[in-house]
Amino acid sequence: MPGDPVQVMLGESATLADQAQLREKLGLNQPLLQQWLSYLIQLQQGDLGHSLHSQEPIRDILWQRLPATLELAIAGLLIAVLIAIPLGSLAALRQNTVYDQGAMIFSLLGVSIPHFWMGPLLIVVFSLNLGWFPVSGREGGLSLVLPALTLGTALAAILARMVRATLLEILHEDYIRTARAKGLNETTIILYHALRNAALPIITILGLQLGTLLGGAVITETVFAWPGIGQLTIESIQQRDYPVVQACVLLISLSYVLVNTLTDLLYAWLDPRVRYRV
Protein backbone atom coordinates (compact mmCIF):
# COMPACT_ATOMS: atom_id res chain seq x y z
CA MET A 1 0.00 0.00 0.00
CA PRO A 2 1.57 3.30 -0.99
CA GLY A 3 1.71 5.93 1.71
CA ASP A 4 1.76 3.44 4.58
CA PRO A 5 3.37 5.24 7.53
CA VAL A 6 4.54 1.94 9.06
CA GLN A 7 6.51 1.04 5.94
CA VAL A 8 8.05 4.50 5.80
CA MET A 9 9.12 4.25 9.45
CA LEU A 10 10.51 0.72 9.41
CA GLY A 11 11.99 0.68 5.94
CA GLU A 12 11.59 -1.99 3.29
CA SER A 13 13.58 -4.69 5.04
CA ALA A 14 11.27 -4.90 8.08
CA THR A 15 9.56 -8.19 8.77
CA LEU A 16 5.79 -8.52 8.57
CA ALA A 17 5.63 -9.32 12.29
CA ASP A 18 7.43 -6.08 13.17
CA GLN A 19 5.14 -4.12 10.90
CA ALA A 20 2.05 -5.67 12.49
CA GLN A 21 3.36 -4.95 15.97
CA LEU A 22 4.03 -1.28 15.21
CA ARG A 23 0.68 -0.96 13.47
CA GLU A 24 -1.06 -2.26 16.57
CA LYS A 25 0.92 0.05 18.84
CA LEU A 26 -0.05 3.09 16.76
CA GLY A 27 -3.68 2.00 16.60
CA LEU A 28 -3.58 1.81 12.80
CA ASN A 29 -5.03 -1.72 12.72
CA GLN A 30 -8.42 -0.57 14.02
CA PRO A 31 -11.32 0.00 11.62
CA LEU A 32 -11.15 3.39 9.90
CA LEU A 33 -14.45 4.55 11.35
CA GLN A 34 -13.29 3.77 14.87
CA GLN A 35 -9.99 5.59 14.29
CA TRP A 36 -11.92 8.60 13.03
CA LEU A 37 -14.38 8.61 15.94
CA SER A 38 -11.68 8.37 18.56
CA TYR A 39 -9.81 11.17 16.77
CA LEU A 40 -12.88 13.39 16.93
CA ILE A 41 -13.48 12.61 20.61
CA GLN A 42 -9.88 13.41 21.46
CA LEU A 43 -10.08 16.57 19.38
CA GLN A 44 -13.01 17.80 21.44
CA GLN A 45 -10.83 17.54 24.52
CA GLY A 46 -8.13 19.59 22.82
CA ASP A 47 -5.98 16.52 22.27
CA LEU A 48 -4.53 16.43 18.78
CA GLY A 49 -2.87 13.07 19.37
CA HIS A 50 0.74 12.07 18.98
CA SER A 51 3.06 12.21 16.03
CA LEU A 52 3.45 8.79 14.44
CA HIS A 53 7.05 9.58 13.78
CA SER A 54 8.51 11.19 16.90
CA GLN A 55 5.76 10.12 19.37
CA GLU A 56 5.70 13.70 20.70
CA PRO A 57 2.30 15.23 21.47
CA ILE A 58 1.26 17.18 18.36
CA ARG A 59 0.18 20.14 20.45
CA ASP A 60 3.76 20.62 21.65
CA ILE A 61 5.10 20.36 18.10
CA LEU A 62 2.63 22.98 16.87
CA TRP A 63 3.48 25.33 19.74
CA GLN A 64 7.14 25.04 18.85
CA ARG A 65 6.53 25.88 15.21
CA LEU A 66 3.79 28.48 15.53
CA PRO A 67 5.90 31.53 16.54
CA ALA A 68 8.07 31.23 13.41
CA THR A 69 5.05 31.15 11.10
CA LEU A 70 3.32 34.00 12.92
CA GLU A 71 6.47 36.09 12.70
CA LEU A 72 6.79 35.39 8.97
CA ALA A 73 3.11 36.01 8.24
CA ILE A 74 3.02 39.30 10.14
CA ALA A 75 6.25 40.52 8.54
CA GLY A 76 4.96 39.53 5.09
CA LEU A 77 1.67 41.28 5.72
CA LEU A 78 3.46 44.43 6.90
CA ILE A 79 5.65 44.52 3.81
CA ALA A 80 2.62 43.96 1.60
CA VAL A 81 0.67 46.81 3.19
CA LEU A 82 3.66 49.14 3.19
CA ILE A 83 4.20 48.56 -0.53
CA ALA A 84 0.61 48.25 -1.69
CA ILE A 85 -1.05 51.28 -0.12
CA PRO A 86 1.39 53.94 -1.37
CA LEU A 87 1.73 52.20 -4.73
CA GLY A 88 -2.00 51.70 -5.22
CA SER A 89 -2.74 55.27 -4.13
CA LEU A 90 -0.13 56.65 -6.48
CA ALA A 91 -1.59 54.64 -9.36
CA ALA A 92 -5.12 55.84 -8.58
CA LEU A 93 -4.17 59.50 -8.16
CA ARG A 94 -2.09 59.55 -11.33
CA GLN A 95 -4.45 57.38 -13.32
CA ASN A 96 -3.33 56.56 -16.88
CA THR A 97 0.16 57.98 -16.41
CA VAL A 98 3.56 56.33 -16.33
CA TYR A 99 3.21 55.87 -12.53
CA ASP A 100 -0.06 54.05 -12.98
CA GLN A 101 1.34 51.78 -15.68
CA GLY A 102 4.46 51.10 -13.64
CA ALA A 103 2.40 50.13 -10.62
CA MET A 104 0.21 47.86 -12.69
CA ILE A 105 3.20 46.19 -14.34
CA PHE A 106 4.63 45.57 -10.87
CA SER A 107 1.31 44.10 -9.83
CA LEU A 108 1.05 41.84 -12.89
CA LEU A 109 4.62 40.61 -12.36
CA GLY A 110 3.98 40.06 -8.66
CA VAL A 111 0.96 37.90 -9.40
CA SER A 112 2.83 35.92 -12.06
CA ILE A 113 6.10 35.24 -10.22
CA PRO A 114 5.72 32.23 -7.96
CA HIS A 115 7.20 32.15 -4.46
CA PHE A 116 9.44 29.23 -5.28
CA TRP A 117 11.19 31.28 -7.96
CA MET A 118 11.24 34.63 -6.20
CA GLY A 119 12.80 33.07 -3.09
CA PRO A 120 15.80 31.46 -4.81
CA LEU A 121 16.29 34.62 -6.88
CA LEU A 122 16.46 36.79 -3.74
CA ILE A 123 18.88 34.29 -2.21
CA VAL A 124 21.18 34.50 -5.25
CA VAL A 125 21.20 38.29 -5.29
CA PHE A 126 21.13 39.28 -1.62
CA SER A 127 22.73 36.30 0.14
CA LEU A 128 25.20 34.82 -2.30
CA ASN A 129 26.29 37.88 -4.29
CA LEU A 130 25.86 40.75 -1.85
CA GLY A 131 26.08 38.72 1.36
CA TRP A 132 23.64 40.96 3.20
CA PHE A 133 21.32 38.31 4.59
CA PRO A 134 21.68 34.65 5.60
CA VAL A 135 20.72 32.07 2.96
CA SER A 136 18.21 30.19 5.11
CA GLY A 137 17.22 29.22 8.61
CA ARG A 138 15.86 31.36 11.41
CA GLU A 139 18.64 33.06 13.34
CA GLY A 140 18.27 36.69 14.25
CA GLY A 141 16.23 39.42 12.63
CA LEU A 142 18.19 39.51 9.38
CA SER A 143 17.14 36.00 8.40
CA LEU A 144 13.51 37.15 8.39
CA VAL A 145 14.04 39.74 5.65
CA LEU A 146 14.19 37.54 2.55
CA PRO A 147 11.33 35.16 3.35
CA ALA A 148 9.14 38.10 4.38
CA LEU A 149 10.00 39.91 1.14
CA THR A 150 9.16 36.80 -0.90
CA LEU A 151 5.81 36.48 0.81
CA GLY A 152 5.09 40.21 1.00
CA THR A 153 5.75 41.26 -2.59
CA ALA A 154 3.36 38.67 -4.03
CA LEU A 155 0.62 39.81 -1.68
CA ALA A 156 1.46 43.47 -2.32
CA ALA A 157 0.83 42.90 -6.03
CA ILE A 158 -2.75 41.75 -5.48
CA LEU A 159 -3.36 44.35 -2.81
CA ALA A 160 -2.05 47.28 -4.86
CA ARG A 161 -4.57 46.45 -7.58
CA MET A 162 -7.39 46.48 -5.05
CA VAL A 163 -6.24 49.73 -3.44
CA ARG A 164 -6.14 51.37 -6.85
CA ALA A 165 -9.59 50.14 -7.90
CA THR A 166 -11.17 51.09 -4.57
CA LEU A 167 -9.59 54.54 -4.48
CA LEU A 168 -10.61 55.25 -8.07
CA GLU A 169 -14.19 54.54 -7.11
CA ILE A 170 -14.03 56.67 -3.96
CA LEU A 171 -12.36 59.66 -5.60
CA HIS A 172 -15.53 60.19 -7.64
CA GLU A 173 -17.74 60.33 -4.54
CA ASP A 174 -19.55 63.49 -3.53
CA TYR A 175 -17.82 63.85 -0.20
CA ILE A 176 -14.44 64.03 -1.91
CA ARG A 177 -15.72 66.86 -4.10
CA THR A 178 -17.08 68.56 -0.97
CA ALA A 179 -13.72 68.19 0.76
CA ARG A 180 -12.00 69.71 -2.25
CA ALA A 181 -14.56 72.50 -2.48
CA LYS A 182 -14.00 73.54 1.10
CA GLY A 183 -10.34 73.96 0.29
CA LEU A 184 -8.69 71.06 2.10
CA ASN A 185 -5.27 70.22 0.80
CA GLU A 186 -4.85 67.08 -1.26
CA THR A 187 -2.89 65.14 1.40
CA THR A 188 -5.64 65.59 3.98
CA ILE A 189 -8.25 64.51 1.46
CA ILE A 190 -6.36 61.36 0.54
CA LEU A 191 -5.39 60.39 4.08
CA TYR A 192 -8.55 61.27 6.01
CA HIS A 193 -11.33 61.13 3.46
CA ALA A 194 -10.36 58.69 0.73
CA LEU A 195 -8.12 56.09 2.39
CA ARG A 196 -10.32 55.84 5.50
CA ASN A 197 -13.27 54.95 3.36
CA ALA A 198 -11.15 52.59 1.31
CA ALA A 199 -10.16 50.73 4.47
CA LEU A 200 -13.23 48.50 4.47
CA PRO A 201 -12.84 46.79 1.09
CA ILE A 202 -9.08 46.67 1.51
CA ILE A 203 -9.35 44.88 4.84
CA THR A 204 -11.80 42.41 3.35
CA ILE A 205 -9.36 41.57 0.59
CA LEU A 206 -6.58 41.31 3.14
CA GLY A 207 -8.59 38.80 5.16
CA LEU A 208 -9.42 36.75 2.10
CA GLN A 209 -5.83 36.85 0.89
CA LEU A 210 -4.64 35.43 4.20
CA GLY A 211 -5.35 32.01 2.70
CA THR A 212 -2.94 32.77 -0.14
CA LEU A 213 -0.47 34.07 2.42
CA LEU A 214 -0.63 30.87 4.47
CA GLY A 215 -0.45 28.67 1.37
CA GLY A 216 2.48 30.74 0.15
CA ALA A 217 4.06 30.37 3.57
CA VAL A 218 4.21 26.60 3.07
CA ILE A 219 6.33 27.05 -0.05
CA THR A 220 8.33 30.01 1.27
CA GLU A 221 9.18 28.17 4.49
CA THR A 222 10.39 25.22 2.42
CA VAL A 223 12.57 27.46 0.25
CA PHE A 224 14.19 29.22 3.21
CA ALA A 225 14.21 26.25 5.63
CA TRP A 226 12.10 28.41 7.95
CA PRO A 227 11.05 26.22 10.90
CA GLY A 228 7.32 27.02 10.85
CA ILE A 229 4.00 25.25 10.39
CA GLY A 230 4.42 25.17 6.61
CA GLN A 231 7.70 23.34 6.72
CA LEU A 232 6.22 21.00 9.32
CA THR A 233 3.36 20.22 6.92
CA ILE A 234 5.72 19.27 4.10
CA GLU A 235 8.00 17.27 6.40
CA SER A 236 5.12 15.31 7.84
CA ILE A 237 3.68 14.65 4.38
CA GLN A 238 7.01 13.18 3.35
CA GLN A 239 7.14 11.05 6.50
CA ARG A 240 3.49 9.99 6.07
CA ASP A 241 2.85 11.36 9.54
CA TYR A 242 -0.89 11.73 8.98
CA PRO A 243 -1.95 13.04 12.42
CA VAL A 244 0.53 15.91 12.10
CA VAL A 245 -0.61 16.71 8.54
CA GLN A 246 -4.21 16.75 9.77
CA ALA A 247 -3.33 19.00 12.67
CA CYS A 248 -1.44 21.44 10.43
CA VAL A 249 -4.27 21.69 7.90
CA LEU A 250 -6.75 22.07 10.76
CA LEU A 251 -4.70 24.84 12.37
CA ILE A 252 -4.20 26.80 9.14
CA SER A 253 -7.85 26.52 8.11
CA LEU A 254 -9.05 27.47 11.59
CA SER A 255 -6.88 30.57 11.65
CA TYR A 256 -8.14 31.46 8.16
CA VAL A 257 -11.77 31.24 9.29
CA LEU A 258 -10.96 33.05 12.54
CA VAL A 259 -9.26 35.96 10.79
CA ASN A 260 -12.13 36.37 8.37
CA THR A 261 -14.59 36.45 11.25
CA LEU A 262 -12.46 39.05 12.98
CA THR A 263 -12.43 41.05 9.75
CA ASP A 264 -16.21 41.14 9.80
CA LEU A 265 -16.19 42.34 13.38
CA LEU A 266 -13.60 44.96 12.57
CA TYR A 267 -16.03 46.54 10.09
CA ALA A 268 -18.30 47.82 12.81
CA TRP A 269 -15.40 49.47 14.58
CA LEU A 270 -14.03 51.03 11.39
CA ASP A 271 -17.30 52.11 9.91
CA PRO A 272 -20.01 53.35 12.26
CA ARG A 273 -22.58 52.76 9.52
CA VAL A 274 -22.12 49.01 9.96
CA ARG A 275 -23.99 47.62 12.96
CA TYR A 276 -24.55 44.01 13.92
CA ARG A 277 -27.67 42.97 15.72
CA VAL A 278 -26.69 41.22 18.92
Binding site: L214, V218, V249, I252, S253
Partner: peptide, 17 residues
Protein backbone atom coordinates in the same frame (compact mmCIF):
# COMPACT_ATOMS: atom_id res chain seq x y z
CA UNK B 1 -13.60 27.84 0.53
CA UNK B 2 -12.67 27.73 4.21
CA UNK B 3 -9.46 25.93 3.24
CA UNK B 4 -6.80 27.94 1.48
CA UNK B 5 -6.89 26.22 -1.95
CA UNK B 6 -3.22 25.52 -2.43
CA UNK B 7 -2.96 24.10 1.10
CA UNK B 8 -5.75 21.62 0.43
CA UNK B 9 -4.05 20.64 -2.83
CA UNK B 10 -0.73 20.17 -1.02
CA UNK B 11 -2.34 18.04 1.67
CA UNK B 12 -4.35 16.01 -0.85
CA UNK B 13 -1.54 15.25 -3.24
CA UNK B 14 0.65 14.49 -0.24
CA UNK B 15 -1.83 11.94 1.02
CA UNK B 16 -2.65 10.52 -2.43
CA UNK B 17 1.04 10.07 -3.10
Amino acid sequence: LAFPGILLAIALSGLLG
